[in-house]
Write a protein that binds this DNA or RNA. Structure first.
Lengths: 253, 253
DNA sequence: CAGTGGCTTGCTGTCGACAATCATACACGC
DNA sequence: GCGTGTATGATTGTCGACAGCAAGCCACTG
């Protein structure tokens, strides 16, 4: 090599990662979608949202484009932005993608014999069991999704974790899109134990199968196929949220 | 059901999907990164890029945020946008994600016994073999990535396909980030045949193993571990592209 | 001569305003 | 009465401009 462009200075302190305004707005929008403050298929008027956030339209639109890329918002020229709607085809694709990511995460954990990771997943399962004892459908749903996200996070792959974060929010979106309304099963824990047991046993295929079974059941519930077949399960429903009057918190200082 | 909200009108024609300006710009930026016109770690000055594209800064910035979300660009406050740099940690995560997606795609194809899908993959392999006979490193690399993308496309999952598209571009970015320069192996085809053979044989585990082996070798090559270990492989290198003077085509009418 | 301080320059980040486009409601004609 | 055409209102898409921040250069000081 003619020139050796060495690192100018070995950084003693990691460079501070100050979040940009667009980061904050995007996070706020995701939270709003995840919590249902922004309803499915609802058009979001930019001046209104920007006003609530205390920013101008420009950074809001930039942040919105990130969610478009994630598939959480859709943009049709002239019609502006709408919260995405998860139809049946996309639902299948979404859960198939989740199977790919989650089962691979399980295999990664098993291949590494990562006890800490398994412990983290068990902790998430404990929180789910605790939530399932209550009647708050939203809390149960949160704990459910948190479990799946924790599984992927435990695999320690930042790339997959970010993708999974999007998949989680889109799953919640699918729940909102369901004609059955927002319903969660209460008796979910047995299937989850199967996943954790497979992790402990170091059986990747069993873990993958358990995840597949778990998610396939979720798809059936969301598409209403369980009801069609007359299957009765113990479910908890959530009242529809206030139609409007939602307000997003202003961007932190 | 009390109310049956039937589809208002069965759409006889599919709704036209007119691409927005932001779509076009984002696609142009991706192409520029993929082709190397925008070099790794290069800061992109907005006025300049916007001028070349014949648009204002606003839509350019919005499009750029999409690429930020994809991980193709990075945004540090006050310092603007830079083409992302794939360091070693991220490289590992990237290829592990590719293993997750591609091996699952293979399993999907096998589970469905989808002969058309296998035919499509074989077609991509044929194109790769044809390119490998030449000395154009870029063409070989394109055909290589096309093969992997074709594999995922053949699985027929739009969600995974979109994710894979990003992974493909980021892989190209990793090649540019490599200190070895842009180098491709010429004798890749045996490993690819193993993948296709496993697809034909309907052996999902074998396909997954072949993909893992293939991608692990790619990581070794990109990190220079092959050279360290003194492994000699038949490679084709590409001259470094013109440092600047790149110009992006204007947005189509 | 090395290090520090301030200045300057360029760019980004954000804003307000204009023009183009779409949806809605209404009037008209068949 | 139904469909078509038109007018209106609102919202988006785009632009140019200003303020604020960061990097780089130069002069100054120890």
């Amino acid at each position: 090599m003619l020139q050796n462009p060495v690192q100018a200075t070995a950084p003693t302190v990691l460079k501070v990662h100050r979040p940009s305004t667009v980061d904050l707005i995007a996070a706020e929008l995701r939270k709003a979608i995840y919590s249902g403050a922004l309803q499915v298929r609802a058009p979001l008027r930019e001046v209104e949202i920007a006003g609530q956030l205390g920013v101008s339209r420009s950074p809001l639109r930039e942040a919105a484009q990130r969610l478009v890329q994630e598939g959480l918002l859709t943009a049709h020229p002239g019609q502006g932005l709408r919260v995405a709607y998860v139809d049946e085809d996309r639902l299948d694709d979404l859960f198939e993608a989740r199977i790919a990511v989650e089962s691979h995460a399980a295999r990664m954990i098993i291949d590494r014999n990562d006890d800490d990771a398994i412990a983290a997943v068990e902790k998430a399962l404990a929180r789910l069991k605790e939530a399932a004892e209550g009647d708050d459908a939203r809390a149960i749903g949160d704990a459910d999704l948190d479990f799946h996200l924790a599984l992927v996070q435990a695999a320690g792959n930042a790339h997959l974790t970010q993708y999974m974060s999007t998949l989680v929010i889109e799953t919640r979106l699918a729940s909102y899109s369901s004609k059955e309304g927002y319903v969660v099963r209460r008796d979910v824990t047995p299937t989850y134990h199967a996943i954790v047991d497979a992790l402990k046993a170091g059986d990747g295929d069993a873990a993958a199968d358990a995840i597949r079974e778990q998610l396939a059941a979720a798809v059936d519930r969301l598409t209403g196929k369980l009801a069609e077949r007359g299957v009765e399960v113990d479910t908890v429903a959530e009242e529809a949220k206030p139609a409007d009057g939602y307000s997003l918190g202003p961007i932190g200082q």
